[in-house]
Amino acid sequence: MTSYDGRNRSGRLFNFDEEQAYTFDLVAGTPRASLIAIADAARAYALRQQGQFDSETEVVCAFTSIDAPDGRKKRLKIFAAGKDFEDIDVNEVLRLQRAAGQFSVAPSRRLVEKLQDDSEDDLLE
């Protein structure tokens, strides 16, 4: 998270998977826990030692994107955010997606890997 404006619930974030910065908006009804995670990450980014990475600036987001005609992501619409994947309530995300008229969100590579790792842990031997 690189910035957040609480007045209009928008900001900028850096997507590690794509090595690209994006502007974002929070959808109406975004859970308060998501707002706290985003504000905490933006605060950590503002207070970091210049040139140093601070893991407190990281958040995991469930989002969809508004894309340009050439396929580039122009702006993200965030449904939920947290410090870790377990902090995101999937049922709440689905409810917000339906309310916003969005019915599918492509999961990030990291989320897919996390889900695969979790499913392997659940296998009985």
Results as ranks from 00 to 15, higher is better:
55 S>P: 13
45 Y>C: 10
51 G>C: 03
65 S>R: 09
74 K>Q: 15
88 I>V: 13
113 E>Y: 01
72 R>V: 09
51 G>Q: 01
53 F>W: 09
85 F>V: 02
101 G>M: 11
46 A>C: 07
103 F>I: 08
71 G>N: 10
101 G>H: 12
77 K>R: 14
36 I>N: 09
118 D>M: 05
102 Q>A: 14
120 E>C: 02
36 I>S: 09
29 G>T: 08
54 D>T: 05
46 A>H: 07
94 L>K: 14
20 Q>W: 04
112 V>D: 03
21 A>I: 05
78 I>G: 00
66 I>F: 03
101 G>V: 11
6 G>Y: 05
63 F>C: 02
125 E>W: 02
55 S>T: 05
98 R>T: 03
11 G>S: 12
116 Q>D: 13
23 T>Q: 12
48 R>S: 04
106 A>R: 11
117 D>H: 05
103 F>L: 14
95 R>W: 02
13 L>N: 08
44 A>Q: 07
50 Q>W: 03
16 F>T: 13
59 V>Q: 04
92 E>V: 06
116 Q>M: 09
44 A>W: 06
109 R>I: 06
27 V>Q: 02
36 I>H: 10
22 Y>M: 04
26 L>V: 03
4 Y>V: 10
69 P>M: 02
69 P>C: 00
72 R>E: 14
47 L>F: 09
39 A>K: 11
43 R>L: 15
16 F>Q: 12
15 N>F: 09
25 D>A: 07
17 D>E: 15
105 V>F: 01
47 L>N: 13
113 E>F: 03
80 A>L: 04
102 Q>L: 10
51 G>L: 08
89 D>W: 01
68 A>L: 14
89 D>A: 13
37 A>M: 01
123 L>C: 13
103 F>V: 14
94 L>H: 08
8 N>H: 15
75 R>K: 13
10 S>A: 12
11 G>P: 08
107 P>H: 01
54 D>W: 02
18 E>T: 07
92 E>Q: 15
3 S>D: 15
72 R>P: 07
101 G>E: 02
79 F>M: 06
106 A>H: 09
88 I>P: 07
77 K>D: 04
87 D>W: 03
40 D>G: 07
41 A>R: 09
96 L>P: 04
46 A>F: 04
39 A>E: 12
23 T>M: 05
108 S>R: 13
13 L>P: 02
53 F>E: 15
49 Q>P: 11
70 D>A: 03
40 D>I: 00
118 D>A: 04
113 E>W: 01
25 D>L: 07
38 I>D: 00
28 A>M: 03
92 E>N: 11
60 V>L: 00
7 R>L: 12
12 R>P: 07
102 Q>I: 15
64 T>K: 08
9 R>S: 14
112 V>S: 07
20 Q>V: 09
60 V>E: 08
49 Q>Y: 05
95 R>G: 02
66 I>V: 15
124 L>R: 11
69 P>N: 03
85 F>A: 08
57 T>C: 15
111 L>H: 10
17 D>S: 15
61 C>W: 01
53 F>N: 12
26 L>Q: 06
99 A>Q: 10
